[in-house]
Nucleic acid binder design. Structure first.
Length: 156
DNA sequence: GCCAACGTTGGC
DNA sequence: GCCAACGTTGGC
């Protein structure tokens, strides 16, 4: 099993939106970055665990946990002219964008803020805290994953 | 293949 | 809203 961090703008899709959606499940569509796409297409698989991260908001940070519940499949939103994720250059015969479904597992008791992540010696190798890392889907190690969960259980 | 111009991300 | 840091596009 692998571990991932996925970013989402809470104004767009928050951890509560995931929890409240049908079957607590959403198709993670709209990944339009090749590096992130490669992770989705080539490395993510059923049963992987996901740290759900809120970005572009008042307090950015990890807010919950989700799990991957299927194998990668075509991101159909790329073929839908009505979709905000429509990509006129995507080709059904040579699909460019991929998605997985993720299911809500739980919310963390408290957010583990970006500030906390940055200042924690155990997390200095996280892609998230390295300068200029804008990947919306990124791998985390099992140790980092567990450490962040532990942080969320520790009172400030 | 280079690289300037443009677009996006995302913290602050 | 600003802007630094990336990513993408497209002319050459």
């Amino acid at each position: 099993m692998k571990y991932w961090l996925m970013k989402s703008e809470p104004d767009d899709i928050s951890i509560d939106d995931l929890r409240d959606s049908a079957n607590h499940t959403m198709s993670w569509q709209g990944i339009r970055n090749y590096q992130a796409r490669n992770f989705i297409r080539d490395e993510i698989s059923t049963g992987d665990s996901v740290l759900f991260y809120h970005s572009s908001c008042k307090v950015p940070g990890v807010v919950g946990i989700a799990s991957v519940i299927n194998q990668p499949q075509l991101d159909v939103s790329a073929f839908d002219p009505q979709s905000r994720y429509f990509d006129p250059k995507s080709d059904l015969n040579k699909p460019r964008w991929w998605q997985v479904d993720i299911q809500f597992t739980k919310k963390l008791n408290q957010i583990v803020s970006l500030q906390q992540l940055k200042s924690d010696p155990a997390l200095q190798n996280m892609l998230l805290v390295t300068k200029g890392a804008r990947l919306s889907v990124q791998p985390v190690t099992a140790l980092e994953f567990e450490h962040i969960v532990k942080l969320s259980q520790t009172a400030e």
